[in-house]
Measured scan of single mutants.
Amino acid sequence: MDALKSAGRALIRSPSLAKQSWGGGGRHRKLPENWTDTRETLLEGMLFSLKYLGMTLVEQPKGEELSAAAIKRIVATAKASGKKLQKVTLKVSPRGIILTDNLTNQLIENVSIYRISYCTADKMHDKVFAYIAQSQHNQSLECHAFLCTKRKMAQAVTLTVAQAFKVAFEFWQVSKEEKEKRDKASQEGGDVLGARQDCTPPLKSLVATGNLLDLEETAKAPLSTVSANTTNMDEVPRPQALSGSSVVWELDDGLDEAFSRLAQSRTNPQVLDTGLTAQDMHYAQCLSPVDWDKPDSSGTEQDDLFSF
């Protein structure tokens, strides 16, 4: 819950932080000083300027060897085509990944977070970031790969997607708890209302004896509580940590079903599988986004697919 609360507080303090972009060759504004600060901008989305290598189908939802083989196929196909790589912007948030063309600003792909089953910074092609997700059109699994400016960037994108998945799962947990509370309150309110109706004398007997209905007592009954809980029953509950912020979080049926399955089948359902080692994760978390744009010590960066 700490990640969720800190993310909400950060967004309320400075929503404009989320509009910064990394990996864009110096076009961005001043960047936060450390990885923790940038992680807090996830709610509205972190932007990464990358190059799209392509996509291939895979048979399993996750796995280092599986993704490595898929990336190898994608890279080989991209090299064989001889075409310049498409420059894209990857927007990562707890909602998922939005992929747009840098030149036309046209939407290429919009992947809900619950469809993503794996992401990684490839070991062999260490400047490549990739994720595996279920197609929104059918049940097939797709591996999408992107060329980053350097290994640090690939690791940073991988960690960002993993963190977005974690925050999304926490949102789901909060929403589920809130819905259970509202359902319980609604049920209790309905029981109270039913009890009051059972003990209320029939209207005919009131008229016969000349008694008047006590409207004041009726007004004191917990009807307002019942209506408050039943009027918006169809509205999706939102985490309290975000009250007053500009973010509107809505959970669709697909996300609810997917996270429910994860909660039942996995020990740590909030953790998205990645190909990063503990050492890689520690190294990337210690980086400032400013470091992502620094040239690798191995030599001059080449803006070309064939540089790796």
Rank of each mutant, 00 (worst) to 15 (best):
A156G: 01
K176G: 07
S224D: 05
L242K: 00
K91R: 05
A195G: 04
R27T: 08
L193C: 07
L107R: 14
R29A: 08
A228H: 03
N34E: 11
A133D: 10
S14T: 11
R266F: 01
C143K: 00
I108W: 08
E301R: 04
V111N: 11
G26S: 14
I116N: 06
F169L: 01
T149R: 08
K184A: 03
Q285A: 01
M153R: 04
H137E: 12
S135Q: 11
S49C: 12
V271I: 08
R196M: 10
V161M: 02
K127H: 14
S227M: 04
V174G: 07
I132C: 11
N211Y: 07
C119D: 08
A219E: 04
F165W: 15
L43P: 05
K176L: 03
A195V: 07
Q285K: 01
F306C: 06
E257S: 00
D291V: 02
D293G: 06
G244H: 02
D296E: 13
D273H: 11
A130W: 09
A164N: 03
M55D: 10
L287V: 02
T277I: 09
G189W: 04
K62F: 06
D126L: 00
F306D: 02
V247H: 13
A69F: 03
A219T: 11
E64C: 12
S224T: 12
D191F: 08
Q134R: 13
Q285M: 07
V75Y: 09
D191V: 03
V271T: 12
T300E: 03
P32F: 14
V75R: 10
R151G: 08
P94K: 07
E59R: 03
V174F: 02
T200V: 04
T300G: 00
C119H: 00
V247W: 10
K204L: 06
L193W: 03
E65C: 14
V128S: 13
D304V: 15
E65H: 11
S175T: 14
P32V: 15
Q86F: 08
S21N: 14
L287Q: 07
M55C: 10
H282N: 09
R95Y: 09
T277G: 00
L203K: 03
L43D: 10
Q187A: 04
L50M: 12
G23C: 08
K150C: 03
Q136W: 12
D273W: 11
H282L: 14
P237I: 04
K123A: 11
L159Y: 07
V157K: 11
L11E: 03
A185L: 10
R266C: 00
R266G: 00
S224M: 03
K91Q: 14
D252N: 15
D253N: 15
G210P: 08
A69P: 02
D37E: 11
H28M: 15
E257M: 01
A145P: 14
Y114L: 00
Q134C: 03
E250M: 12
W22N: 04
M46D: 08
D253R: 15
F306T: 00
L262K: 11
D296R: 07
L141S: 04
D214H: 11
K30A: 14
R9D: 14
T160P: 00
K166R: 01
K51D: 00
H125D: 10
M233F: 04
A241M: 00
R29L: 11
S227F: 06
C199W: 06
N102C: 01
T38S: 15
S135C: 11
V290M: 00
M153I: 05
G26R: 05
M281K: 13
I116K: 12
D37A: 12
N102L: 04
G210C: 09
P61D: 00
E109R: 12
L11G: 13
N232M: 05
P32T: 03
Q240G: 03
D101I: 01
E178W: 03
Q139R: 14
G8P: 08
K30V: 12
L215E: 06
R39Q: 08
Q106W: 01
A130C: 06
Q187S: 07
L90K: 12
L262P: 02
W292G: 01
S6Y: 15
K204D: 03
L215M: 04
A78Q: 05
D303S: 10
E40H: 12
S21Y: 06
L47A: 06
L287G: 01
W172F: 01
V88Q: 04
K150N: 15
K79M: 03
K79S: 07
A78W: 01
F306R: 00
T200Q: 07
Q60M: 14
R182I: 07
G299R: 05
E178V: 13
K127L: 11
L272T: 00
L103D: 00
A130F: 01
Q240R: 11
C199E: 11
E142Y: 15
R238D: 07
F165V: 01
S135W: 09
R9P: 12
V290I: 15
T231C: 08
S260Y: 00
G299A: 03
G23S: 02
V174D: 11
D2P: 06
G82P: 11
A76K: 02
K83E: 12
G189S: 02
W292Y: 03
T100S: 13
I74Y: 09
Y52E: 10
K294F: 00
L193M: 06
K176P: 01
E180H: 05
S81F: 01
L99Y: 04
A68M: 06
G24R: 02
T218W: 04
N232F: 12
